[in-house]
Design a protein around this nucleic acid. Structure first.
Lengths: 215, 215
DNA sequence: TCACATTGAGTGGTCAGACCACTATGCAAA
DNA sequence: TTTGCATAGTGGTCTGACCACTCAATGTGA
């Protein structure tokens, strides 16, 4: 019936976004019933429900049996609002996604490197050891550790989202050069050398990005 | 059949996690087909699909028509736990919002200051003039200009959102000290002195934030 | 009139079955 | 051996049917 590459339920998620906007449905407000959405969007109910379930798991909507579906009242949960734009709207420019993501990563590096407590954690030595013994450490493992330690859940959450919705631009590019940068980064963090750490990060990232086209 | 308060599809999400663990399905690995899950979990296929769709929107799984459902290629299944935790309870602090926002602002400053083209724009002189003549420039005007010039729509959008949904911690705090920092910032941008610009920004922001803590 | 019980419409929750579109696989034909 | 095609298996979608629940209109008895 529908050869679209984009899956129907994602289409519906977008439609819902527009609907909420055009009908000015506010947090706590009621959305059209599933059966009404079926008519208006000309899709099956199960498909509508797949879209709604996804949004519910994300905390964007709330369903009450016998009553209806409601926009989550996130007056106190602004996080959700931010997440919703990521999910509901298209992040077109891949480049923007990558840069923003790198911004978050760099800030995490700055925060961690600037914390006397965090730079003394054994994890850095552990990673350095792994690097020298196994010859490889996954980029994501390091970055994730940094984001988590920087202790900003909002940033961490955004990072996850950006990571998911922007394709991974860093291919398995393991070679000696990369390992040097990684080692520099880890060492700089250990030493609390903030700008040196960022610089190593940049060099590392540039190396991995270079393999790609002039995006 | 099921009067449980917990919704079935959430139950299935949990079951899936257990299943992944017990069968040691690794990232990239294949999950049981929808029809097999129906038999094993004794539920309807649409219910299974609701659970799968949610996980897909979260980026935890990936589905390929004609092939099957696969675990997204994460390094650690710890990610799943972390994400789940986020979904279940959204602990956010206003502080996180502010810090994340400042991260975006600082990156914009770095980008603009590092661009020979951007630092030569007349807008900086214009703002400096306004500052000396009128004795005041709105913080938001400057920051917005920076964000826009940094030419990253995603960051700009995120910034707007954070600004809108996180309360504004910086209110009319105009005094001589603040103007000094603003002037330093603008001058540093003009000169292309990246770190000096960031430093001025930090001092400026600290000043405004400090005034608020006493409230 | 008032308080309470009943009923019915509307809504989300779940299930079963039916197609469709796509993919991989194995077997038969060249 | 290589090629081509039929087929089984998979996700994608739709339909219709119940169930469980909520709410408000309705009805009923004191």
């Amino acid at each position: 019936m529908d050869n679209q590459a984009t899956k129907m339920y994602l289409q519906i998620v977008r439609e819902l976004r527009l609907l909420i906007q055009s009908e000015n449905i506010k947090p706590g407000g009621k959305l059209p019933s599933e059966r009404e959405l079926v008519e208006r969007l000309k899709v099956g109910r199960s498909t509508v429900r797949e879209a709604l379930r996804s949004l519910e798991l994300l905390g964007l909507i709330e369903t009450k049996r016998g009553e209806g579906t409601f926009l989550t009242d996130f007056r106190n949960h602004k996080l959700v609002e931010i997440l919703s734009t990521f999910i509901l709207q298209d992040l077109k420019t891949v480049k923007d996604v990558h840069i923003t993501r790198q911004t978050l990563e760099k800030e995490a590096i700055r925060i961690v490197s600037g914390s006397p407590v965090l730079i003394d954690l054994p994890v850095w030595d552990s990673l350095l050891t792994q690097l020298s013994e196994e010859g490889k450490v996954h980029r994501e493992d390091i970055i994730r550790e940094l984001l988590i330690l920087s202790n900003n859940r909002l940033s961490l959450k955004m990072w996850f989202l950006l990571k998911q919705y922007g394709e991974e631009p860093y291919q398995g590019y393991s070679d000696v050069t990369e390992n040097v940068y990684i080692q520099q980064l880890l060492q700089a963090i250990k030493d609390g050398e903030i700008e040196q750490a960022v610089q190593s990060y940049n060099a590392w990232t540039d190396l991995l990005t270079k393999g790609r086209e002039n995006v």
